[in-house]
Design a protein around this nucleic acid. Structure first.
Length: 206
DNA sequence: CACTAGATGCTCT
DNA sequence: GAGCATCTAGTGA
């Protein structure tokens, strides 16, 4: 529920593991999330203040912040915290649990494992578009988010993917025994880790 | 399997 | 104009 989206965003993010995001016939169970805090986190789109793009993160919690990147991908966040605070949780990966046929048709030649394994893939499988910017995920809108009550999952923690700053902040959370988790790929722009820093841990499926 | 080059256009400086 | 919270198809083994 909405109250679960308040508090430090790195505590909110793991609460969303297992939650189900639904748009029409397609439903995705979230397996991997990343926290971004506008107030303290230089990697956040909200760090440099409110703009037209990131305004949703400064609004009430539980709304969809969609942003466009790399010329062709949309990625989705759940806005968090009280109004006025620019924090959000990036939905990095999930497992399609309903609407497989529709999801497949949207994802070209991808295998079922890859349907929503990655932020751009996830939004594409769900058919999320710019028109869904700002949707209230906890209301009657076309896109909804239902929290899960499964406490038995093994929650893993590690560095963030793709960011050029603050990559080592351990704010990525994923379900340890799920194959529907994106590959860890350090941004080529991120500085190499200093000796003695922890090696990025990743559950090694195969 | 691992690795990588290139696509592609919005947003902010 | 630079940078980007990425993805796919291609190559080589």
């Amino acid at each position: 529920m909405r109250a679960d989206l308040y508090g430090p965003v790195d505590e909110v993010a793991p609460r969303l593991l297992g939650a189900v995001l639904r748009h029409g016939p397609v439903a995705v169970r979230l397996t991997e999330l990343e926290a971004y805090d506008g107030a303290t986190d230089p990697a956040s789109h909200a760090y440099r203040g409110r703009t037209a793009r990131n305004a949703v993160m400064f609004g009430p919690p539980g709304h969809l912040y969609l942003y466009f990147t790399y010329g062709m991908h949309w990625a989705g966040n759940v806005s968090c915290g009280p109004e006025g605070v620019g924090s959000g949780v990036l939905m990095r990966a999930g497992e399609v649990i309903e609407g497989l046929e529709v999801a497949r048709s949207r994802r070209g030649r991808a295998t079922d494992r890859d349907l929503a394994r990655g932020p751009g893939r996830l939004t594409q499988a769900l058919g999320l578009h710019p028109e869904h910017k700002g949707c209230d995920l906890l209301g009657d809108g076309p896109v909804t988010l239902e929290f899960s009550v499964d406490e038995a999952e093994m929650i893993m923690v590690g560095p963030r993917v793709g960011v050029s700053v603050e990559a080592d902040r351990p704010w990525r959370f994923w379900i340890g025994d799920s194959p529907f988790v994106s590959d860890y790929k350090r941004s080529p722009r991120a500085p190499r880790m200093i000796t003695g820093s922890p090696i990025p841990q990743r559950w090694d499926h195969s």
